[in-house]
Design a protein around this nucleic acid. Structure first.
Lengths: 328, 328
DNA sequence: CCGAAACCTGAGCATCCGCTCACCACTGAG
DNA sequence: CTCAGTGGTGAGCGGATGCTCAGGTTTCGG
């Protein structure tokens, strides 16, 4: 029961709340009935809500924590944050994140929008769960190169195709590897019409859909053969915590620069920043630092993650803020 | 959890409800966020309420049953129905009803209103609990004669005085007995300025405050000496179930007529009907039929009763309706 | 006892919300 | 395949709501 309220006041608030919420009377009618002014009734109703005399409870589907999403969006300045319920099995967890991301994307897509598509198991899970959205005529474009095993479901081309199929739209594939030998080769490749044209389409997309990769030896880049274990180790040594479209970032959100960054066949951070909306999807226990780095880079507009990552990232960030506060 | 809702729909309703009720966003902002039209968001919120995804609970003070009040008001066409919580002890019950009635009257009184006042233990309890209302300059007028023991706290004069004191208003006393020998004496008395003037004041009051008397041998009329046990028994034999200002009614709400009705020194039912608002107060286990009769007479605008009576009266009425339905 | 500050109050106004209505897509029967 | 019926959708509008602000009252401290 509400505290700091005398019984008469409590009764009045309950009566007025009853009229308002149960009988759906207008504030004016209630004012009339209780011989009060209309604004006063409004204030009493507000007070009833504030003191808990009226308790509005929302039956959230099991596992969904909307407050957590709000905090995530607030702390990192995101437009949308979607937190999928926690799951015991990694595969199940990825499916849940994929499903959440799919529902989100279905809502978010607008007619005729072009979508730049990244790679990874999380985006593959999104694609697998994706159903026909309300929007029509959408175009899905690979935003980065592929891995040696070209038909793997985690390749951008494959993901773009699956999405286009489900959305009854079209797909543009990028026929290039994720990494080339050096910047010179990259520039040369991008000058090819078949490659550069797709890059341009991706760079001017209305929306980018990206995974967040890790820097462990089991990450997608290594498993798919895009990078060697030695290369990943070198990136780790330079402070890399994760990647977006092949560009690696440190924990502060800064890009790991040349020579590695010049070998990437994927939209750069600058190009990504020019896309109006970047949707990032991530899950898995190895990801908190990677997500943190990407969020701090300020390129992400919407984030879809599993609950453990959401909590972990928030803890890392608030810990960092506490540290800074202590220093000063 | 809500039934008949698929999980995706449930999640969407919960998300939208969260934005609306927790984050206090406007429907337009929500529509923007979820790529829906504004009316659609309104409909979804309505649906969320209907399906129980949002559950609005009102913390009612212990013992208060606002739904019961609503039914009472609905069934008998009352403007207000106030039900005081049930109590174990009769004295406690009367105090609770008196308190509820006092709070109600304090709210209801408007500046300068004249109030016609009846008698009885229930009104005495009201007067005892009465505190200064917001309205000022109110006038309290006895609407019926008194009992032989003139200073008893249940006499109209005494009740009017207490109310006037508390409200910082004025009181007009009626110096006449509740019953006289016959109609001739009554008319004669009412022609006296000191008596007739007060009657006129009472008859043109903005509000009447009446108790509902029973017809048992322990009723106020008998206990105060206004009527003898024999007289009450005769009234019972004629079908009387209760009284208002000394006028007895049967269970259908019709007045018991002459000769008894002509001996009353109190506002008649007709006079009462001309008063814009009649507030009746009643409590006690012997009262259900009396209350029923008075309510059926259609003179009452607002009723204050204890919970047992409220339930009993509703049961009696719905039983009667069922009977009539069965006949036809 | 007096002054000032804090609070509460109700008028006026801009915004928000629910309702009505015409329109359209989908469905099922002919 | 056609067409009436049904359920859902968004425009437009009038009423309802929340907010701001000036005025008045209470309650402190001096």
């Amino acid at each position: 029961m509400p505290v700091g309220l005398n019984p008469d006041e409590h009764e009045l608030l309950a009566r007025i709340a009853h009229r308002s919420y149960v009988d759906a009377r207008t504030q004016e009618q209630i004012a009339e009935e209780f011989a009060l002014s209309r604004p006063k009734v409004g204030r009493l109703l507000e007070r009833a809500r504030a003191t808990g005399v009226v308790d509005i409870h929302i039956d959230t589907p099991r596992g969904l924590d909307l407050g957590l999403e709000d905090r995530l969006a607030e702390v990192f300045g995101l437009r949308h944050a979607i937190v999928a319920p926690a799951a015991a099995e990694p595969a199940e967890q990825r499916a849940l994140v994929g499903r959440s991301a799919a529902r989100y994307l279905e809502r978010r897509l607008a007619d005729g929008q072009r979508v730049a598509v990244g790679h990874g198991r999380d985006l593959a899970a999104l694609a697998a769960a994706f159903r026909e959205p309300t929007a029509t005529g959408c175009v899905f474009v690979s935003a980065m190169g592929g891995s040696p095993s070209v038909d793997a479901p985690t390749n951008p081309n494959e993901i773009a195709r699956v999405l286009a199929d489900a959305a009854d739209g079209t797909a543009h594939s990028l026929y290039a590897p994720a990494y080339v030998a050096d910047g010179q080769v990259r520039d040369q490749l991008r000058r090819q019409d078949a490659v550069g044209g797709v890059f341009d389409l991706a760079a001017t997309a209305a929306l980018a859909l990206v995974g967040i990769g890790g820097t462990d030896d089991e990450c997608t880049m290594v498993r798919s053969g895009c990078l060697s274990a030695a290369e990943i180790a070198r990136l780790r040594a330079r402070g890399a915590v994760g990647d977006v479209l092949g560009t690696y970032l440190d924990a502060a959100g800064a890009a790991i620069t040349a020579p590695h960054s010049e070998r990437v066949m994927g939209l750069s951070l600058t190009e990504l920043r020019n896309i109006p909306a970047v949707v990032a999807v991530a899950c898995g226990p190895e990801k908190p630092l990677a997500i943190l780095g990407v969020l701090r880079a300020g390129i992400v507009d919407a984030l879809v993650v599993d609950e453990p990552n959401a909590r972990a990232v928030l803890n890392l960030q608030s810990g960092a803020r506490a540290d800074r506060a202590q220093e000063s």
